[in-house]
């Protein structure tokens, strides 16, 4: 493999200047668990790598009132090390816990997972359900893009080539809300999702009804997808098993799962309904309602 240059800017300005000067062949890298594999597979052929790991202020979690600001360079293992995060945003920690392996989570970053925009990216559905936004910094300044508008195709996102993701802004769902994430795989570790799904449910003040619901699934379309039919079927309804089953049946038109060497489209479609009931039950169990958890709670 030809040799390339490797840069370690320590400010955003420096990183953007390097990107401008080094041109289109220069590629940002954080944990490198995606970039280094693509490079080895010759699917990516950068002339230079610009590491974002040394840029000040990109790593770490900041709780600010009603939002969590999650730095792009925060590693997956940092996410799991934060107990408060599991209590407040369990759908996200459910997802991170089943990603890759210990070695991969020790280096892979949240920002890298979002920017890769893989249809199977495991943090994407929880973040979509939570209504997160991406803060991007580029040549033309800073902007906040809702994740709902960010994924535009398989491995394609709405960021301009020079833009750097600095943080994910996650509105906190509050005490009457909980969520869950389920990843369907053939083995427990080191496997990409056959299907993944996240739900976030908000109860009415008396606890009887679902005031609001967000559902998202991955590997059912070119991008991770909000399942609006299911969301509508949950909203305003009593928190019962019958409601969850109706919502599962309301999953429809927006999904276009494909046959792949991992599994068939038919299986994906069937399991989508099963996962919705399991994930929503787990979220409701976490809110103290009499529903079954889909796995052991840690």
């Amino acid at each position: 493999m030809k040799d390339i240059s490797y840069h370690k800017p320590i400010t955003l300005e420096e990183a953007l200047t390097l990107k401008r000067e080094l041109g289109p062949g220069a590629h940002y890298i954080s944990g490198g668990t995606d970039v280094m594999v693509l490079r080895r597979q010759r699917k990516l052929d950068p002339t230079a790598l610009i590491s974002l790991l040394h840029v000040g202020g990109l790593a770490g979690l900041r709780w600010e009132g009603e939002v969590l600001r999650l730095g792009a360079a925060t590693t997956l293992c940092d996410i799991l090390a934060d107990r408060g995060l599991h209590e407040r945003l369990p759908a996200l920690t459910d997802a991170v816990r089943v990603m890759g392996s210990t070695q991969m989570r020790n280096v892979a970053t949240m920002g890298g997972n979002v920017m890769s925009a893989a249809p199977s990216g495991d943090t994407l559905c929880p973040l979509l359900c939570l209504g997160a936004s991406c803060r991007l910094v580029g040549e033309e300044g800073e902007r906040l893009v809702p994740l709902d508008e960010f994924f535009v195709g398989p491995r394609q996102n709405a960021a301009r080539p020079e833009e750097i993701l600095t943080e994910l802004v996650v509105p906190l769902p509050g005490p009457r809300s909980s969520g869950a994430f389920i990843k369907l795989t053939r083995r427990a570790a080191l496997d990409l999702a056959l299907l993944n799904m996240a739900v976030q449910l908000w109860l009415s003040p008396d606890g009887a009804r679902l005031e609001k619901a967000r559902v998202a699934a991955g590997v059912v379309a070119p991008t991770p997808l909000r399942l609006c039919g299911a969301e509508e079927a949950l909203t305003g309804q009593p928190a019962t098993t019958a409601t969850l089953e109706r919502a599962a049946q309301a999953i429809g038109g927006e999904c276009s799962p494909r046959d792949s060497h991992r599994c068939s489209a038919w299986y994906r479609e069937e399991m989508l309904r099963v996962l919705l009931v399991r994930a929503a039950s787990t979220a409701l169990a976490r809110l103290g309602l009499d529903f079954a958890l889909s796995g052991p709670e840690i």
């Binding site: 370690k8 890298i29 790598l49 020790n106 280096v107």
Partner: peptide, 15 residues
């Protein structure tokens, strides 16, 4: 202190 897979870790990051 953290285990990682050296085959996909840039040598430059060992600095």
């Amino acid at each position: 202190g953290r285990a990682l897979t050296a085959c996909i870790y840039p040598a430059m990051e060992a600095e």
